[in-house]
Design a binder for these strands. Structure first.
Lengths: 227, 227, 227, 227
DNA sequence: TATGAATGAGCTTTCATTCAT
DNA sequence: GATGAATGAAAGCTCATTCAT
């Protein structure tokens, strides 16, 4: 009975190896320029074997992407695994997202390059489902935090948790893309500190949604629980 | 000497025709799926002639993009060609950008697809220069408005005009991309009004940068000068 | 000693199952588009097992074909298992072949697709032998009938039984292929009744080979024995 | 003005060269095993150029086939370009078809291999039209001869010209395929003269359709006009 | 200047067959 | 005997770019 299990394990391991290889190539070249030949070679497998484990190049891309989302999810969970107040958690999430952006820049880029609709339309439904599942889990987490902040009287009660989340998220993305693509231009030529701006903009948005009471004790709220 | 001028004029006209054709194709298909054959056919020119006027497919793409920036620049200029106060002008610029996003969606998309690093790296230096020139003109305009708002005591004097501009711009972009790509998901499934959110977020950011005095007369500042 | 027999029986049964599956797939898709994977799946066996029982895809194709020939042979035997006269038997065979064509169209088509020389050259010698064996049995049967007709003074004695058989058979095939492939064209566009033509042509050929005596009593000869 | 013509001529010549090369490869290997690479190499052209002149492998196959049909058409026209009687013309056509079969065996085979429906469905409409045009011309010729024979009182007036033509043609095809595939078996092993049988069967069919008057003077009718 | 024929590298996917377990 | 993972060759088609005319 151990045989079946071992086979399962090996199969899983093989899938891992393939993703590892695909990751190396996609990170380096992006989607279109990457070739299945390169990935196969990098995985030290035949091209045919790749297709034994993943239905298409697009699926493989998504599989790598999912790994990135998984990482992000874990980072987010850890960011709120404290007994701090929701506002603090919200800032923690912002920091976690920024850390993800900085530490896992390759995944971040893959996610954005995903915009190419051609990839989107070729992905198998299984992969799609996994994507959506993970997406949902991440959003649930974020929205949950904001809701708690509203319920706790820290954010104004006319704040829609999802709306607030989307607003902060898209604001972050706008600046992150800037940092990713043009940091040299803005920082070097114009002396901007884009990272600080990102934090500032988010802080402004959050403050604008806070109740008067919360604003009054803002420093307390956003100071790490244990210095 | 008239001959030389005529030749110049004709050359310019031919370049226009080519961009017109390229635009039609790129708008319809995006970068990669568009082919030089299609563009040549649409321009009623031979493929070889295309290369006589533009060095590469990438250059052609950028040429179309530049036209979009030109349009944006004109819209921006018009948006501040009133004798309103700078805060009002700032909101006008925001609206102009949103109008550009809505009315010139094709250019907006082309601009973002530009992120693909492959395109970036193949563009000729002449094109690059033109891009930067136009970029500068647009940013000068935006930054100028914000500077005047600071100088006029409407925005706090610790506000860096460029920083503020970039912040508002990237915040807008983040939400615009969302609208462009996933509006159906966020609006349909979750009932969000992304357009309203965009305006709200920008307003919050601007308010957060306003002086107390300006905030007090906010409604006056942002009400159109003459109804 | 029972063990060996059981094993034999099981082996035979397994071969049957495989042919059943191969048949389903080949009938549906033809030779080239059918894949060993599909056949294996349809047989609920592993691909490797297929190769344990049949040397190649081609062999499997021939194995299915043989089953078709077997059916044809049985139909032919039944067609002459009456105590009618040889001319009647000859027409019975013609009808049997047509019935085979109509009822077992899939086998008929497989047989003709066999013309592809690629298949031919990959078949194992064992399969080839079986093919020839069955072929011989069928031809013996046909030739036997014609010989009896000659010996019985119904067909002219300058008629070579094998030659006559081949003539009738190839004439039938020519029209059957037409029916199978292009019936809609000839029937629909030109109003031909290809089935009637097939019968007519064969009848003409047989009549042309009959003795004067037999021709005189043609109607008696070809009227079913018992109405 | 000569330039345009020369270009036209060269383009035509290039198409010819490509067909020549395709012919060599298709004759040797058949459709599926032939590769565009081989054809390109044989044509001393790049693969891309092939696709400049022909839309697909299938189209190229049909183009070669059309050449075969053209040859057949010319042979048929020549076969009846005498002032002989229609019955004689009919036999001439039979001989011409057999000559085509013998001398242009490769084209004959290509035509039959065409049965593969996969080829059929991929052919461009222009090619299809050309095929049908040529087909029609050939059939018009055959049917015209038979009609004249009926009108001249040589064939019975219940003979449908098209039906008679199809009957003779499919009968011929049945035997030709046999000759092409299995001559060695039937001739070598069983001593049949398939070629003679083909002539005999057709003769029997024609005779069976002749009027009594014509049958009486059969020898006169089918003896070449000028020995 | 304008043409358009020619190039040829490049890419994903399929599948019969093998072989270690 | 049975498995099924792994192979790797094969193949059609596209397209940006060049260059002789």
């Amino acid at each position: 009975m151990g045989i079946k299990e071992r086979k399962e394990r090996e199969k899983g391991a093989r899938r891992e190896e393939i993703i590892n290889a695909a990751e190396r190539i996609f990170f380096e070249k992006g989607f279109a320029p990457a070739t299945m030949d390169e990935i196969a070679e990098s995985a030290e497998l035949s091209k045919g074997t790749l297709y034994l484990y993943y239905k298409s190049k697009e699926d493989l891309y998504i599989a790598v992407l999912l790994r990135g989302s998984e990482i992000m999810y874990e980072m987010f969970k850890k960011a709120i695994a404290t007994d701090e107040n929701p506002i603090r958690h919200l800032f923690n999430l912002g920091e976690a997202y920024f850390a993800y952006f900085q530490e896992q820049r390759n995944y971040f880029r893959m996610y954005y390059f995903l915009e190419n609709p051609r990839i989107h339309s070729q992905v198998s439904s299984e992969m799609m489902e996994q994507c959506e599942l993970l997406d949902t889990r991440i959003w649930d987490l974020v929205v949950g935090i904001i809701r708690r902040a509203v319920e706790g009287g820290l954010l104004r009660d006319d704040v829609d948790p999802l709306e607030a989340g989307v607003m902060l998220w898209s604001n972050s993305n706008g600046l992150m893309r800037l940092i990713d693509r043009d940091e040299w231009a803005w920082t070097g030529k114009h002396g901007l500190n884009l990272e600080a701006m990102l934090r500032k903009a988010n802080k402004l948005l959050v403050q604008a949604m806070m109740t008067e009471k919360a604003k009054a004790s803002f420093d307390d709220l956003v100071t790490p629980a244990r210095p």
